[in-house]
């Protein structure tokens, strides 16, 4: 199981993006999230994706980004496959081609592409934010804008516990193997769950005692070690993020010509190749994943 974790954490670096305070980055990420859900316009979503890729380049985090996307991309792509057959779109649907019981619809392709664009664009921005921000700075900033300290703390501790539990899992699996039990495959995972979770509960109990011993939750004011400084440039980025979100949102609401769902048409060849390649990417991903699980 080791090494199977997606590296969703900070990638140390010295890029301009690393130097921006967490709040402006969060503002842009949330702006993108809002806009992505407001529109189905492929051009806007495409711009978001391109911007996301550009930021990935500026932050020099292509390698970790690829490692994340290898897992997530097939999941995003499958929406093209599923939507083409059963569009989440008001009827009437215009059929393009049919294979027996399945029919590919114009609206389905459109809907699939937009859903893929939303998910991909949002994830890109979120990942750039996470990978260029120290988790402690992120939490400290969240606390500044009113996130409760305890909630913050829970997040931090959870992040820390994941690798530890993973290692414990490995230890338990080795112990199972050394006692002649099944040590590989899915069948070995289930019986290992019990010792790992009992261990986790014990660990959390110990942790709470040790935290209280360090005055956690004591009366009086609490201070913060990490002091995130917002420079003028950070404020500019923050405000421009909010303005951009607001302006784009307003544009989407007002300009009805941005809805291309009826005007955009897909030729049968393009539709089939899109659906087939989406299906192929997804099934090959699932096959590789299953193969890996069986092998470990």
């Amino acid at each position: 199981m080791r090494g199977a974790v997606i590296p969703i954490t900070m990638v140390p670096g010295d890029s301009p993006l690393h130097k921006i305070a967490p709040l402006p980055k969060l503002a842009w990420s949330f702006g993108v999230l809002i806009i992505a859900f407001m529109t189905r316009n492929p051009a806007i979503l495409g711009t978001i994706i391109l911007a996301g890729l550009l930021l990935t380049t500026i932050a020099q985090i292509w390698k970790p980004m690829l490692r994340v996307m290898i897992v997530l991309f097939p999941v995003f792509v499958i929406s093209i496959f599923l939507q083409s057959i059963a569009p989440a779109f008001p009827k009437p649907w215009n059929p393009i081609v049919g294979f027996g019981p399945f029919t590919i619809y114009q609206e389905g392709i459109y809907s699939g592409i937009t859903m893929f664009g939303r998910a991909f664009g949002m994830t890109l921005f979120a990942m750039v934010t996470i990978m260029t921000t120290h988790p402690s700075d992120l939490f400290a900033s969240l606390e500044k804008i009113g996130m409760p300290y305890v909630l913050n703390f829970i997040l931090t501790v959870t992040l820390q516990l994941i690798p530890i539990l993973q290692r414990e899992f490995g230890t338990v699996l080795s112990a199972q193997k050394s006692r002649g039990m099944k040590g590989t495959g899915f069948g070995a995972v289930l019986p290992s769950m019990v010792p790992v979770f009992v261990g986790a509960i014990e660990r959390v109990q110990q942790l709470s005692i040790s935290l209280e011993s360090r005055a956690f939750g004591s009366t009086g004011n609490k201070t913060s070690y990490r002091n995130v400084v917002m420079r003028p440039s950070d404020y500019i980025i923050l405000v421009s993020g909010l303005l951009a979100t607001f302006a784009t949102g307003y544009w989407i609401l007002v300009d009805k010509s941005l809805d291309w769902s009826r005007s955009m048409t897909f030729s049968p060849t393009l539709s089939i190749s899109l659906v087939v390649s989406a299906g192929l990417i997804f099934t090959s991903f699932v096959t590789i994943a299953i193969f890996k699980i069986i092998k470990t």
Binding site: P135, S136, S218, T223, Y225
Partner: peptide, 17 residues
Amino acid sequence: TQTSVAEEVALGLENLG
């Protein structure tokens, strides 16, 4: 519990204000 050595030491100090 923390992400860096300095923050680990700081935790108690933060709690003491």
